[in-house]
Design a protein around this nucleic acid. Structure first.
Lengths: 136, 136
DNA sequence: CTAACTAACGCAACTGAGTTGCAAATATAA
DNA sequence: TTATATTTGCAACTCAGTTGCGTTAGTTAG
């Protein structure tokens, strides 16, 4: 895996102390993260505005992507090779746990073929599964 | 189709002027509705608190269900026979238009079979499709 | 039909996630 | 090392959704 510094360089982003710390947090994290998660893990020294702006920058650069959240909060996960637009179809599967409210990216899932419906043009598919996760 | 008054009675809900109007709005509406949509269509005479509380009551009674919204707003649609929990698997498909931000319930879609993943228990499946709708 | 009771409504004030503007700090390029 | 551009952090704001409470209206019993 690339270091956080390499990733930032590749995207033409400045390697600030905060960005390196934030990106590393995503790399080290097992789960997806909300802004609240980030605040807790990174310490409350950094302003929430900085967090929001860094997340937005990372998303535009394709480093992270937004995932659904049970409580409609902003929640993000690190992108992997499958996330790239070049990988033809945007197809994601996410699992939301009813008990811990966490969202998990599901990688190991062969995505179903969906029949087209006339009038609608499909550009992105997302499967959201709800239930209980291994921890709950 | 049942009248709004019948539906309210069946659910043991009081038939107030506002609730009848709101439920009828859903019945007459082609699309799913946000609180903002409701305000516009029903006239601004009613307080938003009333709208939120009625929506919450309708949802608990199984008259309407929440659907995903592009901007993370509260958005609802009338339930049909397929929404009932009795109908074994909670499987919904929704289409979000990138241009008009509207959400459509997709009925005519045979839902794919999803392989289980160990550790996770699946209780509800939702397929969210994004793209452009017939109007856009 | 009326009275009594209970649930729903409407107003005001609040909450909290996310945003904007701007001055100070820091990274990068010259 | 200095100049320039970007990022950070603070304060103040926005806006969807919520809470408390007194008033109004629907329902039920007499």
């Amino acid at each position: 895996m690339r270091t956080s510094e390499e990733l930032l360089s590749n995207c033409g982003l400045r390697k600030t102390t905060f960005r390196k710390k934030l990106l590393k947090l995503f790399q080290d994290s097992e789960t997806t993260l909300t802004v609240e998660d980030i605040k807790k893990k990174i310490g409350n020294n950094n302003d929430k505005v900085t967090i929001y702006r860094a997340l937005s920058t990372f998303e535009k650069s394709g480093l992270i992507h937004q995932v659904p959240d049970k409580n409609k909060l902003s929640r993000y996960a690190l992108c992997n090779s499958k996330c790239k637009p070049s990988n033809q179809a945007y197809q994601h599967a996410h699992f939301i746990c009813d008990y811990c409210d966490n969202t998990f990216c599901i990688e190991e899932l062969e995505f179903p073929k969906i029949k087209k419906i006339k009038g609608f043009e499909f550009k992105k598919l997302e499967l959201i599964i709800q239930g209980s996760c291994p921890n709950c």
